[in-house]
């Protein structure tokens, strides 16, 4: 098992100590020594590197490595296994994905929800079921004070009346029970007008607005039922919604496919439209689909993340600066280890509710009858499914225990593992490779930021 991970970005050699979380910037000497240390002894390292470096330099480098090793900042051990089920094992529910609409006014080709209906009947959630879901969340929340409800679908704005009613009811219930409810919504933007936008901006802690980037890219996948592209229908609405949102959280989020492996251009297009919080995610689809991402695409995708990284860094500190979701990583603190081991907590702390009130481990499992955990009107949840998900963590997932990125990606998406291999603990290699590439970029961005801050402090 590798205890360190080293890489070079923008000519900066970076070393991550996997188990402590420490990050070091090193010179080429130490970077090269770490190719051999600790397996090789001092004499063997001299033999390997003596042609490139002086003996005293190599000794100096080794001394510094050993000093950090002694402080637990290099080659530290993984002592966290006992924490793996600490967070998810509490039995508390914190967060509900409320599928208020199993229907959609778009027919996007790559939609995991089968164009909104999740392979079932097109249906909107009624108020009784929505209110019962709110009660269910509060009843199951234990001592947890801040709870989340995410309005999802389908297209949740097709059931805006219920969204409004849930916010009003939820706020009342929260007030009476000493809780705080935070709401989020994910929308394709088609139904946004000033009235709906203002309601969202007043009540939603976060809003996710779907746009894939350039017009031709967006319209290849995101279409109406009659095949009409949607870019021109939504882009101004999304811009207006963001303009009116002020400094509150939002993400303009796209999906890239095999048809636009040059997705950095789509990110830049959205940045140039004025959006400051952007994400693009790779489509997750079986390989027999023409737009699905395959192993053979990985090299091109990694190069594209590099292009995005360089342009992103160029814009840092300028008016063009923006935030790319996957290039954010907290090196100063971040979540605790217990949280990092378990990821999203689907099937335990995070659940999805359908318009019928059925409960699933998360929105990705909705429609798969093998994963129905119960109904909001029932007292009991299927503990068997909860237990299955509780056991899905980085020490049980195939390959994760040896991976340098395990404390940042938390084992990846369980639904992707299941979708590809029928096994929650399987490893979706294509997703892993992309995640590791993004993490290298994210760590490098933070290193560059911190070095700049330090430089600025010195000049003040």
């Amino acid at each position: 098992m590798s205890r360190i991970h080293k890489f070079i970005k923008k000519d900066i050699p970076i070393v991550l100590d996997v188990n402590s979380g420490a990050v070091h910037v090193v010179d080429r000497l130490v970077f090269d020594i770490l190719d051999y240390y600790p397996e090789a002894d001092c004499g063997q390292i001299m033999d390997k590197l003596g042609g490139r470096y002086k003996t005293e330099e190599i000794e100096e480098g080794l001394e510094e490595i050993r000093e950090l090793e002694g402080k637990g900042l290099l080659f530290s051990e993984d002592r966290y296994r006992d924490l793996a089920e600490q967070v998810t094992g509490s039995g508390v529910v914190k967060s509900l994905c409320l599928n208020v609409a199993h229907d959609c006014n778009m027919q996007c080709k790559y939609c995991f929800a089968s164009q909104g209906h999740f392979k079932g009947t097109r249906r909107l959630m009624d108020k009784d079921i929505a209110f019962r879901a709110v009660d269910f969340l509060i009843e199951r929340s234990g001592d947890r004070r801040v709870l989340e409800i995410d309005f999802f679908g389908g297209e949740p704005l097709m059931n805006f009346e219920v969204v409004q009613a849930v916010v009003e009811y939820g706020n009342q219930r929260a007030k009476n029970t000493g809780k705080k409810l935070r709401y989020t919504i994910t929308t394709n933007g088609l139904l946004l007008d000033d009235s709906i936008t203002d309601f969202i901006n007043q009540n939603m802690y976060n809003v996710v607005l779907s746009l894939d980037g350039r017009r031709e890219v967006n319209d290849r996948m995101r279409r109406l039922a009659d095949g009409t592209g949607t870019y021109d229908m939504i882009v101004d609405k999304i811009r207006r919604a963001v303009d009116r949102r002020g400094d509150r959280m939002y993400f303009v989020r796209g999906t890239f496919t095999r048809c636009n492996l040059d997705f950095s251009k789509d990110v830049m297009h959205m940045a140039d439209l004025g959006f400051k919080s952007i994400s693009v995610e790779p489509v997750v689809e079986r390989e027999d689909n023409y737009y699905s991402i395959r192993e053979e695409d990985l090299e091109a995708i990694k190069q594209e993340y590099d292009r995005l990284f360089h342009e992103y860094c160029r814009r840092l500190g300028t008016p063009e600066e923006f935030e790319f979701y996957h290039f954010k990583v907290s090196l100063r603190q971040g979540p605790c280890v217990a949280r990092r081991l378990t990821g999203c907590s689907a099937g335990n702390q995070y659940l999805a509710v359908t318009p019928e009130g059925d409960i699933y481990p998360c929105h990705q499992f909705v429609g798969d009858k093998d994963f129905i955990m119960g109904n909001v009107f029932e007292k009991k949840l299927d503990r068997g499914i909860s237990e299955r998900f509780k056991g899905v963590h980085v020490y049980n997932k195939e390959n994760c225990g040896q991976c340098w990125a395990r404390f940042y990606c938390s084992g990846g998406c369980h639904a992707n593992s299941y979708k590809f291999f029928g096994d929650l603990n399987a490893c979706y290699k294509v997703g892993c490779e992309m995640e590791k590439k993004r993490l290298e970029c994210a760590i490098a961005v933070q290193v560059i930021r911190m070095l700049k801050e330090e430089q600025n402090d010195k000049t003040v």
Binding site: V15, D17, N19, S20, G21, A22, V23, H24, V25, V26, D27, L29, V30, E60, G61, E64, I65, E67, L68, G72, L73, S76, R79, Y80, L83, S95, C97, E148, D150, V329, S330, L331, R332, Q333, G334, P335, C336, V337, A338, R339, R340, G343, C344, A346, Y350, C362, H363, Q364, F407, Y408, C409, S410, C413, A442, Q446, V447, M450, L451
Partner: peptide
């Protein structure tokens, strides 16, 4: 240190503390 600059400390050790770092 001449060859190594530590950017952040052992955040994971210290921490032992929906749909990553």
């Amino acid at each position: 240190m001449k060859h190594i600059k530590t950017i952040n400390e052992a955040t994971l050790v210290k921490s032992v503390g929906s749909c990553v770092g």
